[in-house]
């Protein structure tokens, strides 16, 4: 499971502990993404749904999620800030915009009280700046790492979860609006070039230490 999504899930579990309610884990993709849902099950979510839909880019994923969430009508949607593979960091906010819901990004604390209809959210604005907001529910919050300590999931629980049946929602390509899908054509995948020429130091630990401290003394 994507690292920041683990934090989002951990926060959901903490909120349920305090406030009750149910947690549904949702993932868009083919059969290969089910493993992630089994982990979510093992961690204790009430429902796990795989959305069978095209997931070539963040806009399609958000559209598929929006379709499903119109039916599920959650009070609160928690997403991670970005996926570590595609790194676009857009899915949560796109989803909020498509559903017409208020949103916040890089959330590091959520305070909710029963039957209030608003949550208090602390979020980062970068460069050490933080903001505290109140947001009306339903809302989409993109959770930043560190919001809760991550808990270990025993493999036995995951094995157990694999025996359970997952719910599957299908969103056919034809029902997606393809609103702002960038028709991007990938022309090249490459290993990033070095910006500087790196001199690698080798030898025994002592050799390296002597050489490195010499370089440090020269550079300072």
């Amino acid at each position: 499971m994507n690292e920041v999504d683990q934090y989002a899930l951990e926060e959901a579990l903490a909120m349920r502990k305090e406030l009750g309610g149910t947690i549904t884990a949702v993932c868009v993709g083919d059969l290969t993404c089910q493993e992630v849902l089994y982990v979510a099950k093992a961690k204790g979510v009430n429902r796990a749904i795989r959305v069978n839909a095209p997931c070539a880019n963040e806009v399609l994923i958000a559209e598929a999620l929006a379709e499903v969430f119109r039916q599920l009508k959650p009070d609160l949607v928690l997403a991670g800030v970005e996926s570590s593979d595609s790194m676009t960091g857009q899915t949560g906010i796109l989803l909020a915009a498509m559903l017409g819901l208020p949103f916040a990004y890089a959330v590091t604390a959520i305070e909710a009280r029963p039957n209030v209809g608003w949550v208090r959210v602390t979020k980062e604005l970068g460069e050490g700046i933080c903001q505290v907001l109140e947001i009306k529910l339903p809302a989409v919050l993109c959770v930043q790492s560190g919001i809760q300590p991550l808990k270990y999931t025993p493999p036995a629980k995951i094995l157990q979860a694999r025996k359970e049946l997952l719910e599957v929602y299908s969103v056919p390509e034809s029902s997606l609006q393809h609103s702002v899908v960038p028709q991007l054509r990938f022309t090249d995948v490459f290993k990033p070039q070095g910006i500087k020429r790196t001199q690698m130091l080798s030898g025994t630990s002592e050799d390296i230490a002597v050489a490195l401290v010499k370089k440090i003394m020269e550079a300072r």
Binding site: G89, L94, A97, F103, A104, A106, G126, L184
Partner: peptide, 22 residues
């Protein structure tokens, strides 16, 4: 930036303009 990550995807939906991030 954080602010861009927060608002630009929603602006792209509002304006129906693709957003290439990062």
């Amino acid at each position: 930036t954080h602010m861009t990550r927060e608002i630009a995807p929603a602006i792209s939906v509002a304006l129906n303009a693709p957003f290439l991030s990062g």
